[in-house]
Amino acid sequence: MTTEEKTKTKTLGKAAISLNGVGKKFSNTQVLEGISLDVSEGEIVALLGRSGCGKSTLLNIISGLLPFDQGTVSIEGVISKNYTDWHSIAYMFQEDRLLPWRSIIENVCLSLETGSSSFNERRQRAMKVLKIVGLEQVAHAWPYQLSGGMRSRAALARSLVINPSILLMDEPFSKLDPLTRSLMHTEVLRLQRERKVSVLLVTHDVEEAVVLADRIVVLAPSPGRVATIEPNQLSHPRVPTDPLVAEKIRQLRLKV
């Protein structure tokens, strides 16, 4: 690689996640086919698509939890099976998966227990993120005592507490009321701005995709494949009532 090329790739931003022709079969049905897609460092990419088109499957593949049949997945430029720094990737599942026998703060601490931090350090860090997602009041409650929206914010806290550099999120805000949701949007945008976190976010909400994402990927079903990749360069903050934003949302709705 020449120096010129190096600077070029650098200015473009190294790919945090890079998928190349990824395909997946479940028994005999092809669920994903030829998925090629990059998420650059510090970029937010939204993944839209019908129910069952393979969005969660794709996140499972990227997170290294699910073996796949065709193509390659690279993370921070390393083929995923040689990748080692998994602790800097947070995966927020479609379900909250809070362990019922742990209090909310203990659930958040779970993410830190694979590291070397002390009990008190973990508690402090967990409490800090719980404040960010507005759950400090219920830090010591049991999961069953929380509403659906609170539970999903607890799951968000469990993902954020590790200070991830890559964040995979599967319909993270679908259970939140509009006000809390926009607070969480602000938080994700702040993480992107201040800490250059790369985000791949699955959503069914076109408006959410337009408000958050720098690029929007629309998947087509059976088998799941990339239908369109829509760049989105509107300036922040994006308010859905803004005519430019509203127009973008309208356009995109036609493509989903």
Partner: peptide
Amino acid sequence: RQYIQLALSLRMSKLAILRKIVFPSIL
């Protein structure tokens, strides 16, 4: 299995999964 998957996504060791997921589940 969703809890096991969660633990795997956090790269927990087998022993930690046994202690933190399996034991509490079967208690």
